[in-house]
Structure formats: structure tokens, C-alpha cells
Amino acid sequence: MSDRTEAPARPPLSAILFDLRSVIGLLFVVYGLVLTILGLIGESPEDLAKAGGLALNLWTGLVMLVVGILFYVWAFTKPPLPPERGVTDDDEEGGPLQGHGH
């Protein structure tokens, strides 16, 4: 690997956003936000009683939110590499969902 200016270019944003890790991140961030908000505003006493007084929506939401963010961090810090054979076959460089994880 040379450190010349041309080679180590970051893959396009679309390649990162369509990487599997970002898709998992999206699902967990959305689920996490919905559950956290629900946990903060909408948990009735009956809901709380179901889990023995534990604010299940709130805690599940917060954990999912953190997990989702971590997946995004992973996808952005170690972005998918372009395919090994040939730099680009066509305009789909890196190929969304090509998934060269690391």
C-alpha cells in the first residue's frame, strides 16, 4: 500500500451508506429512537408491570440506539474496500453491499 495521493481514496459515501453495517445501523437507530421516545413518554403502569417494573421500552431502546451507532462508527472508520480485481468494472465503484468488511 503506497501513501500516494491517488490510491487510498475513500469509497464514495453511497458505498458506505449501503454497506451492510450501515443497514443494520439504520434499523437499530430507528428502532432505538422509537422505543426510547416511547419509553420516556408513553409507558403506562400496565406496560411497566409486564416486565416487573422494569422500563423495558426505554432500556431496549437505549441499548439498540448505542448498538446502531456503533455499527455506523464501524462502517465509517473501516469503509468497504473497492473490489480487488480491477479498480472499477463500471460506474458502481465499490459496489453497495459488496461488503468487503475489512
Partner: peptide, 20 residues
Amino acid sequence: YNEVLQFFVILALLIPVTIA
């Protein structure tokens, strides 16, 4: 890819059920 996504969603089913 869907199997990997499913893996995490299934955990998001099983872990809260177990804890609660």
C-alpha cells in the same frame, strides 16, 4: 445479508424477553 440482519433482530427479540 438478510440473515445477518435477522440475526441481530432475533437477538433484539430474545434478550428483552429473557431479561423481562
